[in-house]
């Protein structure tokens, strides 16, 4: 049950990122953009690093939220 929900969220996440593929199909013209980074594929490294940092921060926030909930329960009793 739980796994099904996680899979659904992951699928949704990947589906949301589909338009990225269209960017890869575009050719370079006029003003410079970070094409080289994208061609060599290394921009994904940066994306991964940012995602890890953000995920870490959000995880910290969630665990802080839980700790406060537990403390609230203790104070109430």
């Amino acid at each position: 049950m739980k796994r099904g929900r996680v899979m659904r969220i992951v699928t949704l996440f990947i589906a949301l990122l589909l338009p990225v593929l269209r960017a890869a199909a575009q050719t370079a013209d006029q003003p410079e953009m970070a094409d080289a980074l994208r061609q060599s594929g290394k921009i994904y490294v940066v994306v991964a690093v940012i995602a890890v940092v953000l995920a870490g921060l959000l995880f910290f926030l969630i665990s802080l939220d839980r700790k406060i909930s537990r403390l609230e329960k203790e104070v109430r009793d």
């Binding site: 338009p19 994904y44 994306v47």
Partner: peptide, 20 residues
């Protein structure tokens, strides 16, 4: 959480207008 992780990835990868 889902939206921020999406924004971190899509914000860097999605196509944007080419402006000088």
């Amino acid at each position: 959480v889902v939206l921020l992780l999406y924004v971190a990835a899509a914000g860097l990868l999605m196509p944007v207008p080419r402006l000088a």
